[in-house]
Computed example of a mutant assay.
Amino acid sequence: MVIPDVKELAEKIEKMEIRGAGKIARTGARGLKLTAEKSSAGNTEEFLKELKEVSDILLGTRPTAISLANSLRFVTKDIESLSETEDLPDLKKRVISRAEEFVELSEKARERIGEIGSRRISDGDTIMTHCHSTNALSVIKTAFNQGKDIRVIACEARPRQQGFITARELMESNIPTTLIVDSAARYFMKDVDKVIVGADSIAANGAVVNKIGTSQIALTAYEARVVFFVAAESYKFHPQTLVGRLVEIEERDPKEVADPSKLPNVEIRNPAFDVTPAEYIDLIITERGIIPPEAAYEILREHFELGPESEIF
């Protein structure tokens, strides 16, 4: 039985009340923690069934954000085999402990990315960013707090306009910021020194899945010879891409774009993400260090010590 608190978390993720790949991942871990804390299971078999049901519900909310699946993998790793030797109270404690560990590691990773990435920001830089990435903002804020004179150009990120969240956050940090419509990115690229974006998933070949519009900005930066950085925790690398599986691109409700009743004979499409090829990406900033896109394969083979076909259970 899925507890109401976890259902509420899943609904908030699906409705984008909880947004951002890192925050979604931490919420997934917290969902499993809540399940363990409030479980009514009478034995380990029932408890495993509860964890599986909760994992399936959470996974269905945002299929493109591999961070969510990887957080669930982290918490439930080897849980079935452990259930053969551990009693129910110990198994619950293990899930709670792992969930807390993941949240702590995730938060520290964001801080570390800020520290590492800020070294690549120079005094006087103008930085373009897209959507709302806490990792990209960590790099920008850390550089600014180091005393570097920087400016930011933030794209609005239609149709949900997460760029407004970015602009507001930068404003509150007193960082000079310009908000632009997505289609103006090429117009302003001549004024940009570096582009920094986040990621929802990173494939084994170094391609990056991020908010729709990212690939256009990357192409524009490539043409203008502007350095393009991706800031992402290592748990956003997608293990199934090692064996050729494609990242699922989520399409959201067309009503986010326009009212279908006002355009009755028009098909309205609303893909939430796009894929930026590795050749348009200069470097990926992770908590483990800065890597070229080609090194994504090695990160995937090492992270979580999981094989490419690892499942949640």
Rank of each mutant, 00 (worst) to 15 (best):
S97I: 05
I196Q: 04
A69P: 09
G198L: 05
P159S: 13
I79Q: 05
E86S: 14
A136D: 05
G60W: 06
F74I: 11
S71A: 15
V257T: 10
E250L: 04
R225C: 01
K12R: 11
I217K: 02
L34T: 04
R19P: 07
G22P: 10
R288T: 12
R30A: 14
R158D: 07
V2I: 15
M171S: 05
L32E: 08
E115Y: 00
I196W: 02
L68E: 06
I268Q: 06
Y187D: 14
A136P: 07
V54R: 14
A272I: 15
S215T: 08
H303W: 15
P271L: 14
Q162K: 15
D253L: 14
R26H: 08
M189C: 01
D200I: 00
T142R: 10
N43S: 10
A167I: 13
F144W: 06
T142C: 00
S106H: 15
S81T: 10
S55V: 01
L59Y: 06
Q146H: 07
K52D: 12
T286F: 12
I121S: 05
I3R: 03
D200Q: 05
E267R: 12
I113C: 06
T134A: 09
L242V: 14
R186G: 09
E169D: 14
K92S: 10
G213P: 13
D191E: 06
P308T: 11
T76W: 09
I249S: 08
E256D: 12
R26F: 10
T166S: 09
L72H: 04
K236Y: 10
I281Y: 09
F74E: 07
L300W: 08
S83L: 14
V103Q: 15
P293L: 12
D191C: 08
K12Y: 11
A10L: 15
A29Q: 01
E309Q: 04
A29V: 05
G206L: 14
P4G: 02
H132L: 15
V257Q: 05
D78W: 09
S234K: 11
I196G: 00
E256F: 08
M16D: 03
K190F: 02
A65H: 05
S138C: 02
Q161W: 15
N135F: 11
I202H: 15
P254Q: 00
V192K: 00
M1Y: 02
L91K: 04
D78K: 14
H303P: 00
D193N: 01
P63H: 03
P254V: 01
A157I: 14
E248H: 12
